[in-house]
């Protein structure tokens, strides 16, 4: 049993985008706060704060989660992927390129969460049909695009990734 006093801190270790971090955190610290305020990875957005909008979606041990609804202590020992971890060596990830080319965003607020949900979808299903794409982003709300171009972007990214581009 590990335990803390009220207001006390607990040591955790997380690997974010391949880099290991050790931190002493308050148990009530949310994962999204750890990412944004402590690790300064502000690509992960806070939208609704109530587990609806999905703007804060990150991948924890291969599964998409809403990082506003997970405590940092619950992520102790986890491998986390955020939107900052998608691009490699200055090259956009195929999903990022497809969102740009297909105009899959307007204001961009929901985009990091959309990208991470799409990433989780394509990891399990590299060749989804449009209905499966819609289901893949069912937990992400967008207030401007009307979704059509987001779905087109994910479709295009899936095709590009299957061709190894």
């Amino acid at each position: 049993m590990s335990t803390t006093e009220a207001g006390g801190r607990i040591a955790i270790e997380v690997t974010v985008n391949g880099t290991r971090h050790r931190r002493e955190v308050e148990p009530r610290l949310l994962l999204v706060q750890l990412l944004r305020e402590d690790l300064r990875l502000t690509g992960t957005h806070i939208g609704c704060d109530t587990t609806y909008c999905g703007a804060c979606t990150v991948i924890v041990d291969g599964e998409p989660v809403k990082s506003c609804t997970m405590l940092a202590v619950q992520a102790d020992g986890a491998e986390i992927l955020t939107v900052e971890g998608l691009a490699r060596d200055g090259e956009l990830h195929p999903l990022q390129r497809a969102f740009s080319e297909n105009h899959g965003l307007q204001c961009g607020y929901c985009t990091p969460g959309m990208l991470m949900s799409a990433h989780a979808l394509l990891a399990r299903n590299p060749d989804p049909d449009r209905k499966q794409i819609r289901k893949g982003i069912q937990g992400n709300l967008c207030r401007c695009t009307g979704y059509h171009n987001i779905i087109a972007a994910i479709d295009a990214a899936a095709a590009a990734m299957r061709e190894g581009k």
Partner: peptide
């Protein structure tokens, strides 16, 4: 709910 909630 959705994919993210079902993960946890």
């Amino acid at each position: 709910a959705d994919n993210q909630v079902r993960s946890r």
